[in-house]
């Protein structure tokens, strides 16, 4: 099993924060999550559980629109949390995946 720490919208090359809209931040988070899983020999389609953390539940539909592009078939178990995030970001995701 792979337990992934909360993924935030940092640029994976420069390490710079990539603040933006919920949409742009969610794209960055899922792309970073894919890089992390692939480095561990896994992949997005081996996700079993995701906690999707948004800064405001009003963005729920926007989140889903981005989310389903990354897990289009047989998506993992998911809970959406509306929480305060670090560094003023709008989105964070943590995940459990099969190795």
């Amino acid at each position: 099993m792979i337990f992934v720490s909360g993924v935030l919208p940092f640029d994976p090359v420069s390490g710079d924060p990539q603040h933006g809209s919920l949409t742009s931040e969610a794209h960055r988070v899922f792309q970073n999550l894919a890089l992390i899983l692939e480095a561990a020999g896994s992949s997005l389609d081996r996700l079993v559980q995701v906690h999707a953390m948004v800064y405001d539940r009003i963005e729920y539909d926007m989140l889903n629109r981005v989310y389903q592009r990354y897990v289009p078939a047989g998506p993992p178990a998911r809970t959406v949390w509306s929480v305060q995030l670090p560094y003023g970001f709008r989105f964070q995701a943590e995940a459990v995946a099969i190795a």
Partner: peptide, 9 residues
């Protein structure tokens, strides 16, 4: 250190 996620609740 273990994997970790922090948020404000």
């Amino acid at each position: 250190a273990p994997a970790r996620t922090t948020c404000g609740v």
